[in-house]
Computed example of a mutant assay.
Amino acid sequence: MALSAVQILTGLATGAATAVGNEAGRAVSDLVRARLGASEDGRAALDGVSADPADPSAVRGLQEAIREALAADPDFQSRLAVVLAGPPPDVPPAHAVSPQYTGNIIIGGGSKVRNSQISLGPLTITNTRATRASLTGIAGLLVALLALGLYRGVQLLTGDDSSRSAAGASSGPKSPTATPSRSASGTSDDAAPVVRDAAKVQQILPDVASLPRGWAIASGSPTTEQCSSNRVGISKDRQFHYICKTGPVLDLQSGYDPGPGVGYNKVHVEVLAYPSVAAAAEGFVGVEAENADSNEAKQVREVILPSYGDESSAVTMIATVPSIGLQLSQGFAVARCGSIVVRVVISDDNGSTVDLDALNAFTRTVTARAQQALDNTTPTAAVAL
């Protein structure tokens, strides 16, 4: 959200905003300037971008100022979300008035009955005795075909097949046929694609080419292992949700170093490849509960990110570690894409806010790469910050 606001403000400052987007952009600009103008640091951040919209340090300073205001002011956060979404689309008229015709019967678009002729688009039929007889014959044929179709439909529904019985086939009760289970999206679980090859699952993890400039893959990454069947997430109602209890689950993980000048220390991505959609759906609930696990030393709250895959959620956690004088802040996101569950963790070892833009960007990218792998194509989605 902060990144989107900064892009709008810099676009207005450089004249890059289009005439169509000017009105919405002005609304965002007015809201941000009113909020940041209440503090000296906020005014300094605004002045820096106004002086030079292309200055990277000024842009970063404004983005950080907006992010801090969003974290400290829920009302500002909700109002900014509304203006970023833009005005609702125009509502179409409740009723459409059809043109009136006199002396004609409208059969359809471009089709009419006029005097002794019937016009059906490019086809014109003259209303004569021979034509009426032909039409009567065609109508009778259509009725016969409809009756035959209805009869065959009843046969399919009831299982009755007289010709088969006459040939000696059994017409008694037939054994029931098992109905395949279906995923949440309505696809048969048996037919849903899965990825069981570790090398293909590893491609879902962002590689160097898909990272922002200056980023690097952390030392020792990625790792590949079988997810432990004892791994469990405990929900608020103290229910246990096992993450990897249903069959063997490939568990691939990788860490990423953002480099200097970034307000967090590292990003961690985990990809869990399940043998079925049903198993992944159970695993998603477990990881979601694991992310939200809290105690008295942690402050965990749910945050709203765009929806990804078949289901997704995100939380932030802030914990104070008095023994070392640090305040740890983390953002956790989990998404399920068919038979694959992805988890993204943003960590700041000495901060009070979580970079939701980075959490959102990595979650969006890894979910897209998971879908590409399920589509049997090489994942190419890149992280855009």
Rank of each mutant, 00 (worst) to 15 (best):
G263W: 07
G263K: 13
Y264K: 02
N265H: 10
V267P: 11
A273R: 11
V277Y: 08
V277F: 04
A278F: 08
A278M: 08
E282M: 13
G283H: 00
V285P: 02
V285C: 01
V287A: 06
V287P: 01
A292N: 14
S294R: 14
N295R: 10
A297N: 14
Q299S: 14
Q299N: 15
R301A: 13
E302M: 10
E302D: 13
I304K: 14
I304C: 02
L305R: 09
S307Q: 15
Y308L: 06
Y308W: 11
G309L: 07
S312K: 08
A314D: 06
V315I: 13
V315P: 10
V315F: 03
V315D: 01
I318P: 00
I318G: 08
T320E: 13
P322C: 02
S323C: 04
S323F: 08
I324F: 07
L328Y: 06
Q330F: 05
F332R: 04
A335E: 06
A335C: 11
R336K: 13
S339I: 03
V341E: 07
R343Y: 03
V345R: 04
D349N: 15
D349S: 14
N350D: 14
N350Y: 05
G351V: 01
G351E: 06
G351P: 05
T353A: 02
T353Y: 04
T353F: 03
